[in-house]
Computed example of a mutant assay.
Amino acid sequence: MSFYREENLEKSYTKPDSGLTVGERLTYFRKVECQTYDLRDELPNVQVPAYIYAGKYDAQCPHKFCVEIAELLPQATFEESNHYPFFEEEEKFKIMVKETAR
């Protein structure tokens, strides 16, 4: 698991379903499906509201790819997060959800 701050990693273990069960399915997707999984050409056809949120330091889904997607869809950036902005910047994430769900 990737966190921007090490203390958040330790804190995450106290929460249920902390992401420790991903295992083989994620490895398969990363090594097999992800090699050809590219939906960028289809993004302009999205007909429902969509929000891109990203931790600036996300190692699994690099921020540069969120910026690329955000050229077509709205984005929210979390400045002190890795892959878990909903945990690392919980209050900011809650505000983003409330504002976008209006």
Results as ranks from 00 to 15, higher is better:
79 E>R: 13
9 L>D: 03
91 E>T: 10
16 P>A: 06
81 S>K: 12
84 Y>E: 11
101 A>N: 14
45 N>A: 13
50 A>H: 00
70 A>R: 02
72 L>S: 10
4 Y>G: 00
62 P>C: 00
33 E>W: 05
4 Y>A: 08
60 Q>R: 10
77 T>R: 02
8 N>C: 06
94 K>T: 07
100 T>Y: 12
23 G>S: 07
70 A>F: 03
26 L>R: 00
99 E>R: 11
11 K>V: 00
65 F>Q: 03
28 Y>F: 14
29 F>N: 09
55 G>R: 00
72 L>K: 15
82 N>V: 01
96 M>L: 14
4 Y>M: 11
75 Q>H: 15
33 E>N: 11
4 Y>D: 01
69 I>Q: 08
46 V>G: 05
34 C>Q: 08
84 Y>Q: 13
79 E>N: 12
54 A>Y: 14
39 L>P: 08
37 Y>N: 15
48 V>Q: 12
40 R>S: 14
52 I>G: 02
34 C>W: 06
43 L>A: 05
92 K>F: 03
21 T>A: 12
102 R>Q: 10
67 V>E: 13
17 D>L: 13
53 Y>I: 02
55 G>Q: 06
21 T>G: 12
12 S>V: 04
91 E>G: 05
15 K>D: 11
71 E>W: 08
6 E>F: 15
70 A>G: 15
35 Q>G: 02
32 V>F: 00
69 I>V: 03
93 F>Q: 09
65 F>A: 00
7 E>C: 04
77 T>P: 13
13 Y>C: 09
53 Y>V: 10
20 L>R: 02
5 R>L: 07
17 D>G: 09
14 T>C: 06
41 D>P: 13
82 N>Q: 09
92 K>M: 04
35 Q>D: 03
93 F>G: 01
2 S>L: 09
52 I>A: 08
28 Y>Q: 06
73 L>V: 02
80 E>I: 04
19 G>D: 03
15 K>T: 09
97 V>M: 11
102 R>H: 13
93 F>P: 08
85 P>L: 04
83 H>T: 15
24 E>W: 14
44 P>N: 04
23 G>Q: 00
9 L>G: 07
16 P>F: 02
13 Y>G: 04
61 C>R: 09
30 R>Y: 00
83 H>E: 08
60 Q>D: 11
89 E>S: 01
29 F>E: 03
90 E>C: 14
101 A>Y: 14
8 N>W: 12
89 E>G: 10
71 E>M: 13
